[in-house]
Computed example of a mutant assay.
Amino acid sequence: MIDSLILQGGADWRAQAEVFDEIFFVFLALGTLVGIIVVAYTLWNVYKYRDDGSEPKEDFDAPVVGELPTGQGGPKAKKLFLSFGLSAIVVISLVVYAYGLLLYVEEGPDADGEGDIEIVVEGYQYAWDYYYENGHMETNELIVPADQRIDIAVTSRDVWHNFGASELRIKSDAIPGETATNWFSVSSEEVEAQGGEANFLVECFELCGSGHSIMKGEITVIPEDEWEEWYEDTEPDEEGQETWEHHFAEEGS
């Protein structure tokens, strides 16, 4: 768990999808364990203190409606404060654990700024344009390298959209005149597992008009060396470079 809170630098970078999957698994596993214990303890008490028609023992400390069981440190009080204490430890531990991971998701891994890929994502009715640093523009297919942090600046040229890729656990509003930032990364292991090229569906998650349902795209992740070769062969465009500079300058200001 401690390692999960220190997700920094190089090989220790983790994709957002992995972080969210870990949080879900931890909460599911712990919730299931606590649920089993609580239900089992409840059923045991139901059986132990069932009314079998016999007279209660003289030392039986029966609960009283409306009375908090804190009397003079008796067994009921010990059980009450023990349950409160254990619950507090579990809840506080989960909050600290999840907060550390969510900070990582929000800020992203530390980087030296030299190897990051920065891309402007611009939505419109009904497609996505992707602008690279050299001014190259792709429509509906975002091509990026594996094992790199990909920073995106998301905006719109007409109405509200929402750029999202469920498998990568990324989702950002695309609002005219505003720029939302996000990041993602895909490991080379994931790319190899998909046969040397990983593909992820992009959808618009904001009802944006009659063509909303067809506003789909794709994120294609390829090995870094292949991406560098592809990027060197792309055709720069002055207008595209101005678009990239405009949005990343706004994000940095």
Rank of each mutant, 00 (worst) to 15 (best):
S4A: 13
L5M: 12
G9D: 08
G9S: 13
G9F: 04
G10M: 08
D12T: 09
W13S: 05
V19K: 01
E22F: 04
E22A: 13
I23R: 10
V26L: 10
F27W: 10
T32R: 00
G35D: 00
V38F: 06
V38I: 14
L43N: 01
L43M: 13
Y49K: 04
D51L: 11
K57S: 05
D59H: 12
D61Y: 04
V64M: 03
G71H: 14
G74L: 04
G85R: 09
I89K: 07
V90P: 07
V90Q: 07
I92F: 15
V95H: 01
G100W: 02
Y104S: 05
G108R: 06
P109C: 05
P109M: 06
A111N: 13
A111R: 14
G113Y: 00
V120A: 02
G123C: 15
Y124I: 11
Y126D: 11
N134L: 02
G135Y: 01
H136D: 10
N140K: 05
A146M: 14
Q148C: 12
I150R: 02
S156H: 10
V159D: 12
N162P: 03
S166P: 01
L168S: 00
R169I: 03
I170E: 00
I170G: 01
S172M: 10
S172Y: 05
T179R: 09
N182G: 09
N182C: 03
F184K: 01
S185P: 06
S187W: 13
G195H: 03
F200R: 01
L201V: 12
V202M: 08
E203R: 08
F205S: 00
L207Y: 06
G209T: 03
G209Y: 05
G217I: 03
E218C: 04
E218D: 12
I219F: 04
T220V: 14
T220F: 01
W227A: 05
W227P: 06
E232P: 02
A249N: 11
